[in-house]
Amino acid sequence: MSATDTQPKSSASKLLLRAGTTLFWSLVAGIVLARAAFFEPGIFDGFSRVASLAKNLIF
């Protein structure tokens, strides 16, 4: 099998591949930007308190 065997042959499949790739990366960028915009920095404060309490109990 050569590399040309995996490439789309017709212009319609090339267009569909490009559209799918563009849609995929647009969704990835949207999810990353939404996570950055709505992430609350203090969300893990409770976990750190529990982790430090567990550490003090164990050691």
Rank of each mutant, 00 (worst) to 15 (best):
V28H: 01
K9F: 04
I43Q: 09
D5V: 09
G46P: 00
G30S: 14
E40G: 06
F59H: 14
W25E: 07
L57D: 07
P8E: 01
L15Y: 10
A3T: 13
S13C: 05
S10Q: 00
G20M: 04
P41R: 03
K55P: 00
V50L: 06
E40D: 14
S48Y: 10
V32A: 15
S26F: 05
L16P: 00
V50W: 05
W25I: 11
N56W: 12
T21I: 03
T21P: 00
A37R: 06
F44M: 14
T22D: 10
G20I: 01
G46I: 00
A51M: 02
A37D: 00
S11W: 13
L57E: 12
T6S: 14
A19V: 10
M1T: 13
A3P: 01
I58N: 11
K55T: 12
V28T: 09
L27P: 00
P8I: 04
L57G: 11
D5S: 12
K9D: 11
V50D: 07
P8H: 07
F39A: 14
L16Q: 13
R49C: 02
V32E: 03
D5W: 05
D5Y: 07
S48V: 08
F39C: 07
G42Q: 08
A12I: 05
T22N: 09
R35A: 15
M1K: 13
V32F: 03
D45A: 13
T4K: 15
F24G: 04
L16W: 05
R49G: 12
N56K: 15
V50M: 08
G20E: 04
W25Q: 06
A54F: 03
A19N: 03
T22I: 12
T6W: 08
A12W: 02
T4Q: 15
L23C: 12
Q7Y: 08
